[in-house]
Amino acid sequence: MESIQAWFRRLYDETGINLTIFYDPWDGLKYLKGIGLTIELAVLSVLLSLVVGVVGAWLQGVRFAPLRWLVYGYIQFFRNTPPLAQLYFFYFGLGALVPTTTNAFGLAEPILNNFQWAVIALSFFAGAFNVEIFRSGIEAVPHTTVEAARALGYSRLKSYIHIVLPLAIRICLPSLNNNLVNLVKTTAIAYAIAVPEALYVANQLWSDNLNVPEMMNVVLVTYLTLVGLFVFGVSRIERALHVPGYTPS
């Protein structure tokens, strides 16, 4: 630990490459916390966007037409507007409308903080794509397979849970993977509403230390590593879901 710090300090002294996060414990801890928050943001919005996707795809198949229109409108809105504008819409637009509570100091405080708004905005953004991805997967499940389930007494909901979804997920895993990788990267826009995630913290650090090029590189390597880990995780899941003799079309 000591020697690593010494090495980076010497690197700075001899070459001018200033990586404070590796020798200044305070900076290092701050950046680690930033990465932690990026991971938290990514995990929560990946999970929530999957829920949005599954529920949305289910609603697209219900008989009650207004619900289907609602889901259609949602998809169009979120697919065709910039995610940053969506984040502002949630945080500044809807954020102004939600009720506030009074905190310990007697000050008005919104019930959702900027981190929570970022999770919601990112989930709805990626969720819109997930709905479409799940729907295409569901449509690719042969209707004869569903008919066999119905003939065995499965209700629509039960066949969705036990047969349609497990097959649809295997069919759409590659596109799902793409969209979720995109979501992990897009967590960086939370910067715009001052969520102290990796990019935001890096900005603070390079303002303090005037080491913009160094920190820029650190930020890129950070995301590269996070996305790499994510893709590794997904490929593990892909392998776990593999069924001998079955190639999802």
Partner: peptide, 19 residues
Amino acid sequence: NLFPHRTALQNIMMAPVHV
């Protein structure tokens, strides 16, 4: 029209258990 993600035995067991 078997369920491709379940084994032969599981295919046979599914409906009585689930339904």
